[in-house]
């Protein structure tokens, strides 16, 4: 009789190495901490930022990749807070290793509360991207990532990097474009802490890239389509470069 006994991908790694591993899989403790963190986050976003979300029905069942414009630490927090159920439990924010995984304490917080996986800017190895791509499909995960690669210092959206294409080109995994408004005003990169201010999140229809080859041309094309989809969700003024005043939500 054969059972499917599959140890955790991170089995055998020392505790500290496990925190920074792309193979880290969540256990019961991480799930409980993560859901407590998300509940606190939702309360905070409702109370201090009156977060409005439109297009939630565009979110498919896992696996999928959630992408958005990036100008603030509030971006990842907002995207992770709006996920529910299975998608929330399977969600990993792909976070800058040199910002969130520098010390053991910050790594533990990033790993256990936010369930972040580290991406090391400018020194990401192709094997690491291959691991992320494999886990996305096999473990039916949800990735939250910002294809610009870094927070826009002036709030204006920068061109997308082709890394998003490496993860999804040639797969059936949908990419869900989102546009975040108000995050830069509430917590720009120049401030240490956020201030209250209204946030709005628009979630667009999923994109698929099964038709694209897993080559540089395919990756760049995927990034171009993703960028266009995110820009299409932005209000006209924001697309031109300066964030607009946030008004009442259409929905």
């Amino acid at each position: 009789m054969e059972w499917k006994l599959r140890p955790a991908r991170d089995h055998g790694l020392p505790a500290e190495e496990r925190l920074r591993s792309l193979s880290r899989e969540r256990g019961l403790g991480s799930l409980l901490l993560g859901s407590a963190w998300r509940a606190a986050l939702r309360g905070y976003l409702a109370a201090f930022h009156r977060l409005q979300v439109t297009g939630r029905d565009h979110l498919p069942p896992p696996p999928f990749v959630l992408i958005a414009n990036h100008s603030s630490h509030l971006d990842a927090l907002t995207l992770s807070a709006v996920l529910r159920g299975e998608a929330a439990r399977r969600a990993h924010a792909l976070a800058a290793g040199d910002t969130f995984f520098t010390s053991t304490l910050s790594s533990a917080f990033a790993a256990y509360a936010v369930n972040a996986l580290p991406v090391w800017r400018k020194r990401t190895k192709s094997g690491e991207l291959a691991t992320l791509r494999e886990r996305l499909v096999e473990d039916r995960l949800v990735y939250i990532l910002f294809p610009e690669g870094t927070r826009a210092r002036d709030g204006a959206m920068a061109p997308f990097q082709p890394g998003i294409g490496v993860l999804v080109a040639g797969t059936e995994v949908p990419v869900v474009p989102c546009f975040l408004e108000g995050c830069h005003a509430a917590w720009p990169p120049t401030r240490s802490w956020p201030r209250p201010g209204r946030l709005r999140l628009r979630i667009g229809a999923p994109l698929r890239f099964a038709d694209l080859p897993a080559t540089r041309a395919g990756w760049e094309e995927a990034a171009r389509r993703c960028e266009a989809a995110v820009r299409a969700l932005s209000p006209p003024v924001a697309a031109a470069g300066s964030p607009p005043p946030v008004g009442p939500s259409p929905r």
């Binding site: 499917k4 955790a8 089995h11 899989e25 969540r26």
Partner: peptide
Amino acid sequence: LREFDRATGLFREPLVAALVV
């Protein structure tokens, strides 16, 4: 339990793991 569930893959069934806890 933590070591056992991570070695056998039982941790991927958090409800069962929670009942054992």
